[in-house]
Amino acid sequence: MNNRKFIYILLLILSWELISRVVGNDQLMPTSLVIAEKLWYELIEGKLWLYAFYSIVAIFIGLGISTILALSISLFSIKYKWVMDFFKFLNSILHPLPGIAILPILIIWFGVGYKAIFALVIHSVLWPIITNLFLALETFPKTLSMVGDNYEMGLLRKFWYIYFPGIMPSFISGIKTGWARAFRAVISAEMFFGVIGATGGLGWYLVKKRVFLDTTGIFAGLVVIIIIGIILERFVFNKLEKITIEKWGLKS
């Protein structure tokens, strides 16, 4: 983190502190100190980290399934042109649908448990990944594909050794978009339905804090969501891009 960002954060906290003191109502706008204290308490006593873990696991399982699906679809798209056309068509109608809008349908089909959450994550992630992969496949160098043919590589081998690394940059940016969409979708879904006793995800944590009118708790949850977003962006995706896209000189 560079110094300037550090100053920005400091400035943000400072102005928050000032405004919240002017407002002077913890139910409306708790001071940053109160939030920090609450955050610490929730992480240690309230198992907030467990809620976060719960959401992240749900997202990652969904991401995993979507990745396998997207790659399989891409594999068949290389072999059969109509597969790509078909999924492009499907993408054009389904991609614009916000996950939360199809939630009622998902509940009817998959119930109110993990299955519905996974379906939601898959919907949120699959289309951005597919859009990116198709774009990469369409501009994929024909020469590279011919190199595979030249060494008599089968479709699977060719996909794994030539296409997959070749479309990696688009794959990563697809996952990046997908992750952001999935994170939002999961939190909204968790706010839509949740399990009271057993641990739920971050969205569920927010609902719980909301219905018991614990505004400070809500802010603690929001801080955690922001931190998770930053960590993933900075330390996972950016790292991933460094060791692939930048190293291979594929940054467009």
């Binding site: 020469t143 590279l144 190199v147 030539i162 690394p165 070749g166 990696m168 692939t244 291979w248 000189g249």
Partner: peptide, 8 residues
């Protein structure tokens, strides 16, 4: 064309 090499 130079794209015949594997960039990775």
């Amino acid at each position: 064309t130079f794209d015949q090499l594997l960039p990775w």
